[in-house]
Design a protein around this nucleic acid. Structure first.
Length: 272
DNA sequence: AAACCCCACAACCGCAGACGG
DNA sequence: GCCGTCTGCGGTTGTGGGGTT
């Protein structure tokens, strides 16, 4: 049993049910306040002192994927889509690494985008293949690995990635290798398939414009947000400097009558 | 209008690495 | 070096909304 499970159990014993599922506005506000006070590092501590009855992990996730100032909302721009494609081709499923090149986008967002995007691609490809040739395709039907499931549900083979097998951990690497092995009984790996998909995208990309270099990626900056978020009202980029400006920061203290977030000094906030 | 499908998004889980005692 | 604790990452699942049949 892991420490986390032990801890969960301990909490249950203490009679504190760990909350799960969607976050309420009130919880968001509470979390924002406590992150404002203690910074976005000590999640376990924040989870404890905030009285949210959430796990530290859950708090962190909520912050990183939803509440963090500067997050972009809305559809990926064409530029971002291209960048994701490029970077995935290069790094594989290193979502956090890719996300760092797209300011305002989270790894989760990119992951989700890729998942749906690639599923669509796979389906299109499958349709194209089945209509063009039912017998001579190199995507042989006796290769179970390339049998795109009729069902559009989760597909394991999307765990493959760019030209470089890159993984943060040995187990992840192992998984990738396993996937490749599983998907390659006849010398045709899932990686090849995805590379193929990537390439077709890549080709259409390069037909129209220059390919992004790494330098481009580093210099890439997203256009200004078009729709104001609550964070635009109350912090602009100041929250990014929160750690350096512990003393002078303003933090969220609720909504005013217009529904706009209110600002206050930490010492002006009373939680309960 | 109802049923169904698809997509986007939010959230959870398991695991591994980092770090401090 | 070991162990406990915590954080971060990648994979997966659940769900709500919008579009289509």
């Amino acid at each position: 049993m892991s420490w986390w499970e032990r801890r969960k159990e301990q909490k249950m014993v203490e009679g504190q049910e760990i909350r799960k599922g969607p976050w309420t506005e009130q919880e968001d506000i509470q979390l924002i306040c406590f992150v404002g006070l203690f910074g976005d590092r000590r999640w376990d501590f924040i989870a404890k002192v905030s009285g949210l009855n959430r796990t530290g992990k859950s708090c962190r996730l909520r912050w990183v994927n939803y509440l963090h100032p500067g997050l972009k909302r809305g559809k990926m721009t064409a530029q971002e889509e291209r960048l994701v494609l490029e970077l995935h081709n290069k790094w594989g499923n290193r979502w956090s690494k890719i996300a760092r090149k797209l300011p305002g986008r989270t790894d989760n967002e990119i992951k989700n985008y890729w998942r749906t995007h690639m599923r669509k691609k796979a389906q299109e490809k499958r349709r194209a293949l089945s209509s063009s040739s039912s017998s001579s395709s190199s995507y042989s039907s006796n290769n179970p690995a390339v049998e795109f499931p009729a069902d559009t549900g989760p597909v394991k083979f999307f765990d493959s990635g760019g030209s470089e097998i890159s993984a943060s951990s040995p187990s992840t690497k192992k998984k990738m290798v396993e996937n490749q092995e599983l998907g390659d009984p006849n010398g045709f790996s899932m990686d090849d398939i995805w590379k193929d998909i990537d390439l077709s995208d890549h080709e259409s990309l390069t037909m129209n414009q220059d390919v992004y270099s790494e330098e481009d990626c580093n210099n890439f900056s997203c256009p200004a947000l078009t729709s104001p978020t609550p964070w635009d009202y109350y912090c602009g980029d100041s929250m990014w400097r929160m750690e350096e400006e512990e003393e002078s920061k303003l933090i969220f203290s609720g909504y005013d009558h217009n529904g706009r977030p209110r600002l206050a000094q930490p010492n002006q906030i009373f939680f309960y």
